[in-house]
């Protein structure tokens, strides 16, 4: 099981339904969509793809394994952008 948490040097603001994440150590600016912002808020604490998918399905009243696959792909992208740390447990 892999857990993810956002890096402490990354800070985000919401603007017109999109989120802008500033990484103050890497000097990067990343924008994510509204559902991505919901996931980002959850990543204040350690999360697994499953726990985020559960919260997303509850918030957006949706079902299906596709949601979990979407979350895993999104987390992998955030990791490539160096915005989250992850641990394999």
């Amino acid at each position: 099981m892999t857990t993810y948490v956002r890096k402490s040097e990354a800070d985000a603001v919401e603007l017109d339904g999109e989120w802008i994440i500033l990484n103050m150590e890497q000097y990067t600016v990343t924008t994510i969509n509204e559902v991505g912002g919901f996931c980002w808020e959850l990543l204040r604490d350690k999360q697994t793809p499953e726990s985020i998918a559960q919260a997303v399905m509850k918030e957006y009243d949706t079902q299906g394994r596709a949601v979990e696959a979407d979350i895993e792909e999104f987390l992998a992208h955030l990791s490539r952008c160096e915005l989250v740390d992850y641990e394999r447990e």
């Binding site: 890497q26 990067t28 990343t30 994510i32 559902v35 991505g36 957006y60 999104f74």
Partner: peptide, 15 residues
């Protein structure tokens, strides 16, 4: 709200 897959829209390095 309607569900859209979470996405990274852009990623820029600033100098």
């Amino acid at each position: 709200k309607g569900y859209n897959a979470p996405h990274v829209l852009s990623h820029l390095a600033v100098q």
